[in-house]
Design a protein around this nucleic acid. Structure first.
Lengths: 161, 161
DNA sequence: TTCCTTGCAAACGATTTGCATTGGA
DNA sequence: TCCAATGCAAATCGTTTGCAAGGAA
């Protein structure tokens, strides 16, 4: 989520000055009696540094293979349950995770159909409001209760073009 | 894709009167020297009848288990390669397929986070133009070559609400 | 102590593939 | 005819889980 420096930075959304992602996660987890263990901290750190959603295997590499893949799956599961990370389902049945929106800010995805890489993008506020209204209308008209939305832009990234 | 009767119907986009999905697929495949076999016809028929993307397992049921799952995977692979169907990656590593946009018309998805069901929706033309412009801008600004886009609206469907 | 987390390996489920057989242009 | 498509079973690959050991409260 590094692309969104402003939203992801220290003081965001009512958290006082100098509240880091790590601190906000810690607070949320303790409020739910969920331990913020070493492995979980490493995962949050890696996701905070990533440019987009990461899979368990990718995180395993990102973290220098010091955390076994099965533990990553378990950590990701707990963090997802706690609403700290959110899953994204991509090609070849791979699930990638990213920090939840209250941590990373609302954004959309550029998905490379060639190499599978996913990059985050943010939409200018004005446009985003338009999208949200559209989403609400479409959902309501179908008796659907909208919770979130993502605009997935598929194409070829600069490297694969 | 049944939700989009007008776009999916007989005469669409420059194909003469009474051109069915089946005929258009036949034409496209023969133009590429790809056989339109019994299994492939059944798959196209089932997708044409579906309300949204279907997985290999779901198609297996839809077709009364007369086509083995492995054959469905192979048919879907060929049809995807030929640009006749398009994949959608969902929860639990399940890939669902739908007719490509030139057959089904451009649309978006309502994804139920509870049961995983996906429903197609179309956006009024005016709004859709706005989305397309936004997509082009966002992609270009990131050195990305946009090919397609889907607005995924996640929420709870009427049955799960 | 007591409950939660971790690591390893076995289990699972979706998808892919090898191979012998069948089918379509 | 003759290569491509199919069916079945075995193999893959991402992900989940059982179980014993390690940690924190």
């Amino acid at each position: 989520m590094r692309i969104i420096p402003i939203l992801a930075s220290a003081s965001y959304q009512g958290f006082g000055v100098m509240t880091t992602v790590d601190q906000r996660v810690e607070e949320r987890l303790s409020g739910r009696s969920v331990r913020y263990t070493r492995a979980r901290r490493l995962v949050i750190g890696a996701l905070g540094r990533a440019e987009g959603p990461r899979s368990a295997a990718e995180l395993h590499d990102d973290l220098g293979r010091q955390v076994p893949v099965s533990s990553l799956y378990r950590s990701l599961g707990v963090l997802e349950e706690a609403g700290v990370v959110a899953p994204h389902h991509g090609a070849r049945g791979v699930t990638r995770y990213e920090l939840a929106e209250w941590l990373a800010g609302h954004h959309h995805h550029l998905v490379c159909v060639q190499c599978g890489a996913i990059e985050d993008v943010i939409v200018p506020k004005g446009k985003e409001v338009g999208i949200r209204e559209l989403v609400d209308t479409l959902a309501r008209d179908s008796g659907f209760m909208p919770l979130d939305h993502v605009l997935e832009i598929e194409g070829r990234c600069s490297r694969c073009a």
